[in-house]
């Protein structure tokens, strides 16, 4: 790992991810839109809880899916198709440095997203009783969720033609939003669907963030373990199946 190359590549990856209008729509537009919309139009059942306590973990999860899975996956799929990855193969940039640069760029974006979502929530009146331990655990949950969704995004980007990957990533994004408990609570679904939705990384990410930020949700250790499991499985699948050209 050469720091000069890693730093230069991370700067490039970050600029490229932020440049794309569709990317900004899915990375910032979707989570902020959902936060504001469901606050102004209270159609979601809240079971007596503060609506923003339910919406913030969901919006954070959607944000991570948007950047780590959709934006990273689509841009990587096009880089594959346009032989950009192949071209890197005849430079001193190593694969580990390229993957590391992409990971760092996505993490920077996740930090920006988390700041934007929590900032918007605070502006809408969200006053959670945060603890330092809770915030640290939430950060770890975000990190693991980022790894898991990036793994899923790259597994899809690593095999399909770019347009196919684009369609598939958007489809998977929609499915995870609908079934992962962030738009429709799992409790409102038929049992079999809720059982399926409950194992998805989206549900674990939103649930763990809810526990760490608002003290309502699955046990933190179980949530973090499940997210770590998803991160490992998705990364291994992506690494095993990824085609560089």
């Amino acid at each position: 790992m050469n720091l000069r190359r890693l730093r230069a590549q991370t700067a490039l990856e970050l600029r490229l991810l932020l440049r794309n209008g569709e990317n900004l729509l899915v990375t910032l537009g979707a989570p902020l839109g959902m936060l504001v919309f469901f606050t102004l139009v209270p159609v979601l059942p809240t079971a007596g809880r503060e609506p923003l306590d339910i919406l913030v973990p969901g919006a954070l999860t959607v944000a991570v899916m948007g950047s780590a899975m959709v934006a990273l996956g689509i841009s990587t799929a096009f880089e594959r198709e346009h032989s950009v990855l192949r071209r890197y193969g005849v430079t001193p940039l190593r694969r580990g440095e390229l993957v590391g640069a992409k990971a760092l760029a996505v993490l920077v974006i996740v930090v920006v997203q988390a700041t934007a979502v929590t900032g918007a929530a605070a502006a809408l009146g969200w006053r959670p009783g945060l603890t330092p331990g809770g915030v640290a655990a939430a950060g770890l949950a975000l990190l693991l969720a980022t790894c898991a969704f990036a793994g899923i995004g790259l597994a899809i980007a690593g095999r399909l033609p770019a347009m196919g990957a684009l369609a598939m990533l958007n489809g998977v994004f929609l499915l995870l939003v609908l079934l992962g408990g962030v738009a429709v609570p799992l409790a409102e679904m038929p049992d079999w669907l809720a059982a399926f939705g409950g194992i998805l990384p989206t549900a674990w990410a939103a649930g763990t963030l809810s526990t760490t930020l608002t003290s309502t949700g699955p046990p933190v250790v179980a949530g973090l373990s499940a997210l770590a499991g998803w991160a490992v499985v998705a990364s291994v699948v992506a690494a095993r199946t990824f085609r560089w050209e």
Partner: peptide
């Protein structure tokens, strides 16, 4: 210099 380029189009 590869024939199909490999130059990033968004950069």
């Amino acid at each position: 210099m590869l024939q199909e380029g490999g130059t990033h189009r968004s950069a």
